[in-house]
Design a protein around this nucleic acid. Structure first.
Lengths: 218, 218
DNA sequence: AGAAGATTAAGGAATTTACGTAATCAGAGT
DNA sequence: ACTCTGATTACGTAAATTCCTTAATCTTCT
C-alpha cells in the first residue's frame, strides 16, 4: 500500500513537528516536505510533488491562501487542506474560492485530521461540520442580499487595499495624505468607499478587518 | 527512572495531540492531563498534581497568564513553561512576573521543547535566546526610563480596561457613554488617559493593544 | 482629616465623518 | 475613434468626534 505523500506548511516549527510525529504514528502518511511561510511553500512544492498540501493561512510574508492560488495556477489538480486557527467566514470562503479541497480548524482531534487527509487524497472534499455551517450561512446571506437591492460584495481596489493597510498601521488620514502625496479629501473618499464596500462602521472595524485578512502584522 | 509528569493546556486540540505524540516518543515524559482553556487548567490541575505545566497564553475565557497566577497562588512551587505564538515584550514580561519558569515561542523545534522541560523540571529556568534578548532589552529600557523623568509604565485601572475593550469592540464614544450611563466627556477622558499611559496615539492603536493583550476576540 | 488615586465631567480647538458631487484617466468593448 | 466603466482624484459643508486642559467628586488607605 502506498503512503499518502504530504507537504506541510506552518510557521510554527513545533506545530509541524507535532503533526509530523502524529502522522508518522499512523503509517499511512509520509511527510515529504515542510515550509514555514508561503514563499517557501510555493518554491519547494515542485521539487517533491506531494499528493496533498496541508497549510496554515496566516504565515509571514505570503499567506497560505495567496500561496495556494499561485500553486494551483500551475498544478490545477493538486489537493490542498487548509488548517487554520480561525474559522471566520472570510477565511473559509476565500480558501474555497482559491481551490482548497478541505478546511479544518486547529481544535479538531488528530483522528479527524487523518480522516480529512484520506478523504481528500481519495479525490473527495472534506469540510468539518462547523465549517460547513459557515459556508451554508454565507450562502443564505448571499441569497438574501440578492433578493434585496444588489449590494454585491465588491472587493477592494489596489489603492483601497493600500489605504486599509495604512489606516491599520495607525496612520491618521492626514499622514496618509502626506505619505502618498494626495489630498486628505481623497483619503477620506477612499475610506468612505472602503467602509461602504465592507459594511464597516469605523476605523476600528477597518483595523480588525486588516488583521483578520493578514494585511498587517500585529 | 521516573517520567516527568506534564500537564498541557492549549486551546487547539490538534496542537495538544501533536505535542502528546511528540513527547510520548521520547519516553521521558508523561502527559497526565490536558486543558483547552484557562478555567479548565485551574480546575483540573489539583487532581493530577503534575511536575510541570505547559500552557499557551491566548485561550478563550481565562488566559494562560491569569490562570497560572491563580494556580501559583495556591501551589507556589509548581513549574510552568509558557508556550506562545507571540514573543512580544509584554507577554514575556507578564509571564515572568506571574511566576513562569520558562517561555518558548512556538517556532522552536521539538528538541528544544524537551530540553526546556527537562531543564525546568530539574529546578532551573529556561528561556529561549530570542526571549532572553527581549528581557534584556526591556531592562535596558527601564533603566533609561528611571534615569530620565519617571514615566513609570502604569497599568490601566479597571474602568480604563473596560473602556479599552469597548473601544476595541468597535463602539463609538457615544455608544460607550450610553451603555455605561456616563457622559461622553468621561469616556473621552478615560480614552485620553489610556493613550497617555500606554503611549498610543489613536483608537487604531488601542484596538491593536487590545488584540495583543487578548482583551477581545478577533 | 489628609493624601493619593480613580472616576466623573466640561469647554474649545482641531479633526474626522457622512454624504453629495464631480473632474480626470486608463482600459475594454464595439 | 468613440463610448462605457471603474478607479482615482478632489471639494464643500454640516454634524459628530477627538484631543487636550482643567477640575470637581468619590474612594480608600493611613
Amino acid at each position: 500500500m502506498e503512503k499518502i505523500r504530504v507537504f506541510l506548511a506552518d510557521d510554527h516549527k513545533l506545530f509541524r513537528d507535532g503533526i509530523r510525529s502524529l502522522l508518522s504514528a499512523s503509517n499511512e502518511f509520509e511527510i515529504v516536505g515542510e515550509a514555514s511561510d508561503g514563499l517557501q511553500l510555493v518554491n519547494n512544492i515542485s521539487k517533491v510533488d506531494p499528493d496533498i498540501i496541508i497549510t496554515d493561512i496566516s504565515m509571514p510574508g505570503l499567506n497560505g491562501i495567496e500561496a495556494i492560488k499561485q500553486i494551483l495556477a500551475e498544478k490545477k489538480d493538486l489537493k490542498v487542506l487548509i488548517l487554520s486557527m480561525y474559522d471566520n467566514e472570510d477565511y473559509v470562503l476565500d480558501s474555497i474560492r482559491a481551490g482548497a479541497k478541505g478546511y479544518l480548524p486547529k481544535d479538531v482531534p488528530a483522528e479527524e485530521l487523518c480522516l480529512a487527509l484520506k478523504t481528500i487524497a481519495g479525490g473527495k472534499e472534506y469540510f468539518n461540520s462547523s465549517i460547513s455551517d459557515i459556508v451554508v450561512k454565507s450562502i443564505v446571506q448571499q441569497a438574501r442580499v440578492q433578493s434585496g437591492r444588489s449590494v454585491k460584495l465588491q472587493s477592494l481596489t489596489d489603492r483601497e487595499m493600500e489605504i486599509v493597510k495604512l489606516i491599520a498601521e495607525g496612520l491618521l488620514s492626514k499622514e496618509i495624505a502626506d505619505k502618498r502625496s494626495i489630498s486628505i479629501h481623497t483619503v477620506d473618499t477612499h475610506k468612505t468607499n472602503i467602509m461602504q464596500k465592507l459594511k464597516l462602521k469605523s476605523s476600528v472595524d477597518i483595523v480588525k478587518y486588516a488583521i483578520r485578512h493578514d494585511l498587517i502584522k500585529l
